[in-house]
Amino acid sequence: TEEGAVEVRTYLENGHAVIEVEDTGIGMDPEMAEDLFEPFRQASEGLSRTYEGTGVGLAVTSETIDQMGGRVDVDTEEGVGSRFTVRLPRSERKGDDARGDASRP
């Protein structure tokens, strides 16, 4: 975003690790949001588009999250900003303490 803020939050919720990335940028029409996860799609397309990029970043992100058993959601409003929320199943490893750090012998 050229003006405003970008916030990144992480937390645990219902057995999932959650990552939220929220900005106060340009946002977009909520009906276009699902198309962003298709390869080579952007909210602004064509020769007169405002922003650069190939439009594969969110498609790769979505596929990677899907392969890890998670999901990604987007909430957006044109002129207000967007929030992308990633939910990944939290794995419990033997020897982890309550903070998730591996125990050392």
Rank of each mutant, 00 (worst) to 15 (best):
residue 1 T to K: 04
residue 2 E to Y: 09
residue 2 E to V: 14
residue 6 V to A: 15
residue 7 E to G: 06
residue 7 E to F: 06
residue 12 L to D: 01
residue 13 E to N: 02
residue 13 E to Y: 02
residue 14 N to C: 03
residue 17 A to M: 01
residue 18 V to N: 03
residue 19 I to E: 00
residue 22 E to D: 05
residue 22 E to V: 10
residue 23 D to T: 07
residue 24 T to G: 14
residue 26 I to W: 15
residue 26 I to S: 15
residue 27 G to R: 04
residue 30 P to F: 12
residue 31 E to S: 15
residue 31 E to G: 14
residue 35 D to C: 01
residue 36 L to P: 05
residue 40 F to N: 15
residue 40 F to L: 10
residue 41 R to L: 11
residue 41 R to P: 08
residue 42 Q to I: 03
residue 43 A to I: 10
residue 45 E to N: 05
residue 46 G to T: 11
residue 49 R to E: 04
residue 51 Y to F: 08
residue 52 E to H: 10
residue 53 G to A: 07
residue 55 G to K: 06
residue 56 V to Y: 08
residue 57 G to N: 12
residue 58 L to T: 12
residue 64 T to D: 10
residue 64 T to R: 13
residue 65 I to L: 04
residue 65 I to Y: 00
residue 65 I to E: 03
residue 67 Q to M: 08
residue 71 R to Q: 05
residue 72 V to K: 03
residue 74 V to I: 15
residue 74 V to S: 03
residue 75 D to I: 09
residue 77 E to G: 06
residue 78 E to S: 09
residue 80 V to S: 08
residue 81 G to K: 11
residue 82 S to A: 13
residue 82 S to N: 15
residue 84 F to D: 07
residue 85 T to E: 00
residue 86 V to H: 05
residue 86 V to K: 00
residue 87 R to T: 00
residue 87 R to Q: 00
residue 90 R to T: 04
residue 91 S to H: 14
residue 92 E to W: 14
residue 94 K to F: 07
residue 96 D to A: 14
residue 100 G to E: 01
residue 101 D to P: 00
residue 103 S to D: 08
residue 103 S to R: 10
residue 104 R to K: 11
residue 105 P to Y: 04
